[in-house]
Design a protein around this nucleic acid. Structure first.
Lengths: 334, 334
DNA sequence: TCCATGTTTGCAACCGGTTGCAAACGCGTA
DNA sequence: TACGCGTTTGCAACCGGTTGCAAACATGGA
């Protein structure tokens, strides 16, 4: 059906190797042959088959991208950046939607079947079997947005969640908030656990209690709203540190629907700085996670691991920063 | 590196064909051979190479998914549904991020290089060359969310934008709105053109003028907000029909920042019914586009085209419906 | 026991490229 | 003109599977 190497070779009056070489960078071809081949290829509308090439070279230029947060808009940014950054490097993402139903084994299996050169897992929690499954098959894996310092050998690119939790506490303490609550992401997520740990450490260092800690059932607006309603029906607090902007927006709407003014009656501090955080109806003060840097670094890392499997490939952590908008009262200058 | 057919065959004491056949559905293998092979494969951790198989069978099970709306959260829903639906059918998406910078030719080229079985284009405007490029290579293409009734041979799955525009006009007329404005998506998008055409037809059928028509520069919150500010600085209107929910949210925030109450002072009607439309801070009354149905149908269609290239493959259109929330005043019962 | 029939098996060619190797070539110099 | 050296070229084997074909095998009936 499609035009093949052989046909181009015949038309150009050269060998198949010659054609192959004109299409592989850095191979030795004379200018004359090259132009003959290129002309023939153009006339025939030849497109080299990456499938065949992959088979011969044992490289597919395919990177598995595993994710499970298809509900959270932050992931759209992640997607956008990944697909573009990979495209720029001549790589292609093969996406796995790791929803709760599909079992991880099947996904591992399918990525191995396609002989992906490497895998980037972009979920805060990495199923442990994943690591082993790919390690067993000698496929490099990078864990983006993952937990640092795990026993696992898989390099991580992300943030220091404990430090970010501490930064959040610091931010609230500076403003003299007294009754401080935490509304985290799913309780089982390592990112949640670490952030809250960092948060509590900083609070107790300042001799302050944490008024309430609870968890949204998932990273969604609705989960945030529901958890916040449940919190407010039990007690009143001055400020809430949320584990995710989306959760925070849900929480804000819950507070507003109970007649509370933001930031007058209650303050909110988000996490991520997703695009929507700047929308006027929310104008969320939030801890910014440098998504772009993390993604760029994780692609750099996986590329390096693919080309130098035996090299050193250390984890990389980035700093978070506070983005000031309108959901917290100003820093106390007393 | 990876375990191959040959090694499994050797271990199981059978021919390579026998191994191949135990891994291809519907092939003739005795129960005894099959179990020998399966055991050997398990012990060796064998995973058949889809690359090699694709080369031999001329089928990759890869579907190109081309999109350019990586900014719009509606696309996350689209993504989620596509990846899942494809996974269920044993197909895999190969995603192309058609940003303004990347030239379409390169994307066509890369999808052809990977020998995708088919392509789903999920953007409202399909670059015309796309069609020809794939048609030339005999690759089936489906245009999801596209314009129906074009001269092009490419089947479309989507909605009847003119009818939806008329539905929007009808909805506003029923509520006795008088000074009615339209804030469309990008002016060049065919979906915008058609919706507005349908809208105007219905309005003039009722003998009503359209107070203002303008366009957001892209499908974003910010573009909507900016366009709305520009509208309100020139005139005041009773209600605005927006070409997209996201644009509508931006427009709502612009109106609110000027002190207008919704729906008291001004009404809004959105389009799409994306997840966020139901958030309390917006509670958008909107025209719902059945995204899930469209995606499912487009996958059905592309699958059919792949397996029966010569069959009839008609376009499919779905109906839109109005989702009532809180941004319009009630239907007038006079 | 022999034959006809249907099933299972292995052989070998093929899918469309890549690449090590040695032969052929081009070119400057003696 | 002959020689040596670096470049370009074609040959042929290989990547890891599939599959048409014919031989080998099993099964049941005569």
């Amino acid at each position: 059906m499609a035009v093949t190497l052989k046909e181009v070779a015949a038309k150009a009056g050269v060998s198949r190797s010659a054609v192959s070489r004109t299409f592989t960078a850095g191979a030795s071809v004379s200018a004359k042959t090259r132009s003959k081949v290129e002309e023939a290829a153009r006339e025939l509308g030849y497109t080299p088959s990456l499938i065949a090439r992959s088979l011969a070279t044992n490289r597919t230029e395919l990177i598995g991208l595993v994710a499970n947060n298809f509900q959270n808009p932050i992931f759209l940014e992640v997607f956008d950046l990944y697909t573009q950054a990979l495209q720029e490097r001549g790589l292609r993402p093969l996406i796995v939607n790791l929803t709760n139903e599909t079992d991880p084994d099947a996904s591992v299996q399918m990525l191995r079947q396609y002989r992906v050169d490497g895998v980037v897992v972009a979920t805060s929690t990495l199923p442990v079997d994943f690591a082993n499954a790919f390690a067993g098959a000698n496929v490099p894996v990078v864990h983006a947005f993952g937990r640092h310092g795990e026993a696992s050998k898989i390099p991580v690119v992300g943030i220091d969640n404990k430090a970010c939790g501490a930064l959040a506490a610091e931010t609230l303490l500076q403003r003299n908030y007294r009754s401080i609550a935490v509304l985290g992401g799913p309780q089982s997520a390592t990112s949640t656990i670490d952030r809250i740990a960092g948060f509590k450490d900083r609070m107790s260092a300042a001799g302050q209690p944490v008024a309430d800690i609870r968890y949204a059932s998932n990273y969604s607006y609705y989960a945030g709203r529901e958890a916040m309603h449940s919190l407010l029906s039990e007690k009143s607090v001055d400020v809430v540190f949320c584990g995710d902007d989306l959760i925070c927006m849900g929480a804000m709407d819950a507070a507003r629907s109970r007649g509370l003014k933001i930031p007058g009656d209650i303050g909110f501090l988000g996490f991520n700085d997703m695009d929507m955080a700047s929308w006027e109806s929310y104008a969320l003060t939030t801890i910014r996670q440098p998504t772009g840097d993390i993604i760029q670094a994780s692609i750099d890392l996986i590329s390096a691991m693919v080309s130098k499997p035996d090299g050193q490939h250390p984890s990389r952590l980035f700093d978070c920063t506070v983005v000031e908008r309108k959901t917290l009262k100003p820093v106390s200058t007393s």
